[in-house]
Write a protein that binds this DNA or RNA. Structure first.
Lengths: 209, 209
DNA sequence: TAGATTGTTAATCGATTAACAATC
DNA sequence: TAGATTGTTAATCGATTAACAATC
């Protein structure tokens, strides 16, 4: 069996989003060319990806939007409900918490938020349960939290990541501008560093001048 | 002349960050192997990148930290001062604004923030100058703002991006979960979509189960 | 049947890694 | 000189794109 690589997962995640929108607009069928335009890919890449995950359309006919979306969802678990938490409730963490809740993704439940500052926990108003940082492993394990969003200062990032791994998360989204080590190989991480993104953008324009 | 590709820019941006840290720690010289470990790359990739941007070390000797950092900075414009602005001052935008200011990057000046809601502009406390959204082009042009961080709702994203292009930015960091078109080819964009990131993380663990 | 559009292989392209030559 | 480590080419790997065969 062929392993599904990261580029495929990323494209499929976006394709799924597009199909969801088409379904809302009640479009029933769609060609690989259209999907290519909507996702910014070559039509041939779209077909290859769809073929690769094992879905069969029918020659000459377009893809069935509903069916394709549902096959992709099943294959990648996009409709499986996941629990998530946020660690670090400074300005960024609090905003991300509200942001995720506001997005109202039906498959994503935000079930806990942590901060090391007990005073801060008392002043924050949210519908999500709040805990002190020393309870990270325990709460993650008990609530079976799969995803952790980390927005803590650089100095605590590695420790928090370790505790998330111990608790048993399967994915970490890291906003701290530091490269962290994962103590478990079954945990994956994606990072976002604002300063780094802005530096890359400015380098691109600098180079093309 | 060989064109510098995106992967190279991304690696160099991080390498620069690492070299800056080494300089703070007063480490004078460093091998490609060490740099590889610190950046998560192969030593051979590090050497190839350094070679590619035209820097020459000396055989047998390690790289001079200060010199290498300064060459990279000059080549990619990392120390050139850039002006930036934020558009959209909801929970996420406001947090990003504080976040960037708190990061205190010496080469990045946050000089303006915009929102379409005039009432909101009056309640926000910040040291940055605030403007209504209808002045985006004018202010970007007048202050020669190079980078725009966009945190507006999906429905306004495309319009805001167009106005940033008209104003003359060279880079856009987009937090709206939508693919936007750029009307100018000399503007680059990078996007971050929280829901999408979480979906990708959860798919990775789903697939490896 | 002819037209449309998918399925699938082959070709290309680009990026990474391995190997080792160069030389301080 | 020998050892260390960079510079640089060649080999590999993987991903994308082109081409066209398949067939509804």
């Amino acid at each position: 069996m062929n392993k599904i690589t990261n580029p495929v997962i990323e494209r499929m995640s976006y394709l799924y989003e597009i199909l969801r929108q088409l379904e809302v607009r009640q479009q029933l069928r769609v060609t690989s060319t259209e999907l290519g335009e909507l996702t910014g890919q070559m039509a041939t890449t779209v077909r290859k990806d769809i073929h690769f995950i094992g879905y069969k359309g029918t020659f000459g006919t377009r893809y069935d939007v509903r069916e394709l979306r549902s096959v992709i969802a099943g294959r990648f678990g996009f409709t499986t409900v996941k629990s998530a938490c946020i660690i670090g409730l400074g300005a960024l963490g609090s905003a991300l918490l509200n942001h995720v809740i506001a997005a109202q993704e039906p498959d994503l439940h935000m079930v806990a938020a942590f901060d090391s500052n007990v005073n801060r926990l008392e002043t924050i108003r949210t519908t999500v349960e709040l805990y002190p940082a020393n309870r990270i492993e325990e709460v993650i394990a008990r609530k079976k939290i799969a995803l952790a969003i980390i927005a803590v200062p650089v100095v605590s990032a590695q420790e928090v990541v370790d505790r998330c791994c111990d608790g048993g998360v399967s994915g970490i989204l890291n906003f701290s501008p530091v490269r962290v080590q994962l103590k478990r190989s079954d945990v994956s991480i994606r990072s976002f560093d604002m300063s780094s993104e802005l530096r890359i953008l400015s380098a691109r324009s600098f180079l093309s001048v």
